[in-house]
Nucleic acid binder design. Structure first.
Length: 288
DNA sequence: GTCCAGGAGTGAT
DNA sequence: ATCACTCATGGA
């Protein structure tokens, strides 16, 4: 299918999802909900192979192709810093990911790094998810709350550290319907954030990640150590400033699509200056 | 051995 | 409200 202005590299490797693997020929293999996918990009032509029947409909939803990305980027393009990030991460879309997996993954992200988060998510999936295969690649679905609760002993062996209890308590809240993610997704952003923060192990940052990366609430601005550094450096002359102040500043400064500003800044400052990824690799992965 | 990683809970002030 | 401390794990 033809999709304009979508970069698989920036979209799948900017850190919003932990479930995609770049293959040797720079296509991507991943499991999303119940299905396995392989996506190949040649410029603006995307070849999607999947166990899912309607891949075009899936892609429209998952990559949020209904949004007007150019208009969003125009609105957040406030100065030369963000302008540079927008230009360098061309084609980065914020995904609409499944809510439970997103919540669980970001609970595991606390005081953790991306390779280790990926390892933990993969560990859980291998042990408690269902196997899916496509074109010789295989992976596992992310375990449901009930699958996790039926196998707490196995969860305890997944090396989740202090986050293990948080994950199990969150799964209990979901199963007991004390938290209903579908309902929460329909609330206003502020109410949504408040509800998510009732979950043990979910503070403001993780609530914002779920709101942004699952519910498409672009007014959310998650503040992690990297975005904190970036904002402090670019807009506060490295002066002392709290995470709350950073968040309020960014929401006011970038406006209703500040979540996109957050992701472009994060991606630009992390992914475009990576160790181990040469610019050549980047270009290959971009499908140039 | 030390420091850091897409933080959050707890308790003291 | 804001601080300091702690939490388990793996990599540099």
């Amino acid at each position: 299918m033809e999709i304009n202005n979508l970069s698989l590299y920036y979209t799948l490797e900017c850190g919003q999802t932990f479930r995609w693997r770049r293959t040797s020929d720079c296509s991507y293999f991943g499991i999303v909900e119940e299905n396995a996918f392989i996506i190949r990009q040649h410029g603006n032509i995307f070849e999607i192979t999947s166990t899912e029947s309607d891949v075009e409909e899936w892609a429209r939803r998952y990559f949020a192709l209904d949004i007007d990305l150019n208009n969003i980027l125009l609105e957040i393009d406030r100065d030369e810093h963000i302008h540079k990030a927008i230009k360098s991460c061309r084609g980065l879309h914020i995904l609409r990911q499944e809510a439970w997996e997103t919540l669980a993954s970001y609970i595991l992200s606390a005081n953790n790094n991306i390779p280790n988060i990926k390892r933990m998510v993969e560990n859980l999936s291998q042990r408690l998810g269902e196997r899916r295969e496509i074109e010789g690649y295989s992976g596992f679905t992310f375990p449901s709350p009930s699958a996790i609760l039926k196998n707490k002993d196995i969860v305890n062996k997944c090396r989740l550290g202090f986050r293990c209890d948080y994950l199990i308590k969150a799964a209990e809240m979901i199963r007991e319907e004390r938290i209903e993610l579908v309902k929460i997704s329909r609330l206003s952003y502020e109410e949504c954030r408040e509800e998510l923060m009732k979950i043990m192990g979910v503070g403001g940052k993780i609530a914002d990640c779920v709101a942004l990366f699952s519910f498409g609430m672009y007014e959310a601005f998650p503040v992690d150590v990297w975005i904190r550094r970036i904002i402090r450096n670019l807009y506060f002359s490295n002066n002392k400033v709290s995470n709350r102040e950073i968040r309020h500043f960014a929401m006011r400064y970038f406006g209703r699509y500040c979540g996109y500003a957050q992701e472009y800044l994060y991606c630009h400052y992390r992914l475009n200056k990576p160790e181990g990824i040469t610019s050549q690799t980047v270009e290959q992965a971009q499908g140039i």
